[in-house]
Design a protein around this nucleic acid. Structure first.
Length: 421
RNA sequence: GGAGAGAUGGCAGAGCGGUCGAAUGCGGCGGUCUUGAAAACCGUUGAAGCGCAAGUUUCCGGGGGUUCGAAUCCCUCUCUCUCCGCCA
């Protein structure tokens, strides 16, 4: 979350940036500062009172030690009176209100973020790869999946519900092959592989910003108060919650494969066909924790990394820089990657790479000691490399032939063949 | 799931309800010594809020309570360990 001190010193800037993100409650900024003023005032009052009480308590102890019981009793009366004056409730109220507002304020978009409110206003930064020209009668992946028995959506409906596909035979193997390939690709670039828990506690969900903003979007195991992770970002970024790193330990680079679970409440009907939108899907994620001075260079580096991975899959892709209104709550700058699904004739988002600056690390208290020995917040970044279902969909669709499905070279050795079927 | 033990500073580990933000050891940092290193010795070494500063407040797993005063007593939650049961 944002830091009150920063908001106080850069109030106008904060207002402008929130507007760029299409934030609807700008009055919260003033409200926050008012509560912070009160907080300081109450804190000061309480400190002084408490100092008096502490001093007297010490004296009482000494008087008792000398056997001066009556004087001690007198002091006790003083203390009792001061305690009446204490109003810690007011301080607690101010602190609670400050926290509540901070949770409502999204991250500020960086100065590089283009203005805009809708996805149409995102900027296409780059296009690459070639859209294949498919044979007449080319079909979407859900038809291919059925024809070659790669994925069974109906079976998933039976076992669990819609949005939980069952991968079968070559379909299952291709999924596994790609996970393996993506992880190898990432570790070759210096990322350390982790296999984290797929459920997290409340503190972790708050740490990366899923709570309270996306409460209804996660599956919640209420008995134990655990959440199924919507992305590996949550468990692996939280590895460094409440941690102070040495500067020499930076940058921290982590990659992890996990399934991801999303309720996708409210998104029924549209774009949910086949693998386009699921409640459970596989993803390989990248996370970096870095020195703030380098975070935007690192962001570009991560974008380049994901781009190379897409290129190696020989898919037509484009890179978007998201406008203020389309960015996530916690992000300061986001690039989205989309691949072109030729059979569906539309772009599918397969990766999102973001710099969160200190928004997550402030919540998580993920810090480092700088050259002067001062403790500072790190910058956190993450990106998908990659989300599996839509990659699988476009690999199937873009490589279909009349009598089978071919594979890009990079997957041959992983899959053990140059074609799916 | 049942029974018991525990949670203290980077780690280990003390701590009669008052002078404890906390002994001691290790580790870290600085220094003396040394050609250099090791050893030895000396010093230093948690976090956060307010304040120009002096200073002051808070933090001994989380929350609540008793008390003039709590790391120390009580309640509660969470977690860890040991034994038993169950089990991949």
């Amino acid at each position: 979350m944002l830091q009150v001190g920063f908001i106080r010193q850069n109030t106008e800037l904060v207002r402008q940036r929130l507007a760029l993100k299409n934030f609807k409650q700008p009055e919260l900024v003033d409200e926050l500062l008012r509560w912070d003023d009160k907080r300081k005032e109450y804190q000061h009052e309480l400190d002084e009172l408490q100092a008096k009480i502490n001093a007297s308590s010490k004296e009482i102890g000494q008087l008792m030690g000398k056997g001066l019981k009556e004087e001690a009793e007198k002091k006790k009366l003083d203390v009792a009176e001061w305690k009446q004056q204490q109003t810690p409730e007011k301080l607690t109220e101010a602190e609670k209100n400050i926290e509540a507002i901070l949770y409502l304020l999204p991250n500020l978009p960086s100065e590089k973020v283009p203005p805009g409110k809708t996805p149409e206003e995102n900027i296409v930064v780059k296009e690459g790869g070639e859209k294949p020209s498919l044979h007449a009668g080319a079909v979407p992946h859900w038809d291919l999946a059925k024809k070659y028995n790669l994925i069974d959506f109906e079976l998933g409906n039976k076992i669990t519900g819609s949005g939980f596909p069952v991968y079968i035979n070559k379909g299952a193997k291709l999924q596994r092959s790609m996970i393996q390939y993506f992880l190898d690709f990432n570790t070759a670039a210096g990322y350390i592989e982790y296999l984290p828990p797929f459920m997290v506690n409340e503190a972790s969900a708050y740490g990366t910003g899923q709570l309270p903003d996306k409460e209804g979007q996660m599956y919640h195991a209420t008995e134990d108060n655990f959440y199924l992770i919507p992305t590996a970002e949550v468990p692996i970024t939280n590895i460094y919650r409440d941690t102070i790193l040495k500067e020499a330990e930076l940058p921290v680079k982590i990659t992890a494969y996990t399934p991801c679970f999303r309720r996708e409440a409210g998104s029924y009907g549209k774009d949910v066909r086949g693998l386009n939108r699921l409640h459970q899907f596989d993803k390989v994620e990248l996370v970096q924790l870095v020195n703030p001075a380098q975070s935007y260079d690192v962001l570009e580096e991560m974008v380049a990394h994901v781009e190379r991975l897409l290129q190696s899959l020989e898919l037509p892709y484009r890179i978007l820089k998201l406008c203020g209104g389309d960015m996530g709550f916690t992000s300061a700058l986001t690039y989205d990657f989309e691949v072109y699904s030729t059979a569906q004739q539309k772009w599918l988002e397969v990766s999102s790479v973001s710099n969160f600056e200190t928004y997550q690390t402030n919540r998580m208290k993920a810090r480092y000691k700088d050259a002067n020995g001062k403790t500072q917040l790190l910058h956190s970044l993450n990106g998908s490399s990659l989300a599996l279902p839509r990659i699988l969909a476009s690999v199937l669709e873009n490589n279909q032939t009349i009598d089978g499905i071919l594979l890009p070279k990079s997957l041959h050795s992983y899959f053990g063949s140059d074609r799916v079927v």
